[in-house]
Design a protein around this nucleic acid. Structure first.
Lengths: 108, 108
DNA sequence: TGCCCATATGGTAATATAGCCATACATTTT
DNA sequence: AAAATGTATGGCTATATTACCATATGGGCA
């Protein structure tokens, strides 16, 4: 056995957050929320899926603490709860860019 | 419809990378590879799962370009292909820390 | 009160993921 | 050449994820 329980648990906690980030619609939503808070109907329009689907995506993001919501009349507005997503997105982008570089080398 | 095809495709590409990051064993592996390159048998020992399982995790990481491998005799060594994981891990950590803060407030 | 609008939730079916075992393949050792 | 070691892959089952539909809930308005 390579690890103790505590460490294992820590990686599971991290993975729960990473899993919440692992869907195109959820990444789109987080990106959109960088600009300004948005209600479910706006995000539904943006994502282009069923309203219930988007609502569930938002619940997933909320459960791991990536977004928070506030009620305003009949509407529910969501907003980013962390400013750290920059680092995350940059990392992903750099991987994708590197991949493209490698592909281009293959072609040459 | 809220988006064009190109943007949608971009978010799918990002999500593929994020998905590869969304498993505790794979996060553990990436963390371990920060120190030094390691062969499959070392990583298998570390993760504590079947060798075939670890091999598949490594294939997933490799497919999205997060790691690369080199053969050395009978062994295959893996290593991180991007240095950017810092940013990613920091982001995750900051979310987790914020969650704990909120939980503590609830208790008080 | 009765009717719309915005959102969340339960149900369900299709698909994806994760793990193990068995096994194939390559390399090293005897 | 045969046995042993290190890795990858196919098969299979169990579980998780996703999307949609139908519907419940709650607020605002006629």
């Amino acid at each position: 056995m390579g690890m103790n329980i505590k460490k294992r648990f820590h990686y599971e906690a991290r993975a729960r957050v990473a899993k919440a980030l692992a869907h195109p619609s959820r990444l789109l939503i987080l990106d959109a929320l960088k600009e300004k808070d948005q209600c479910v109907c706006e995000l539904t329009e943006l994502v282009g899926a069923d309203q219930s689907t988007v609502s569930k995506h938002l619940a997933i993001l909320k459960n791991v603490g990536l977004v928070e919501d506030r009620k305003e009349g009949a509407m529910v507005y969501y907003r980013n709860r962390c400013r750290c997503l920059e680092g995350f997105f940059e990392c992903i982008e750099s991987v994708l860019k590197e991949n493209i570089k490698v592909q281009q080398k293959m072609v040459l």
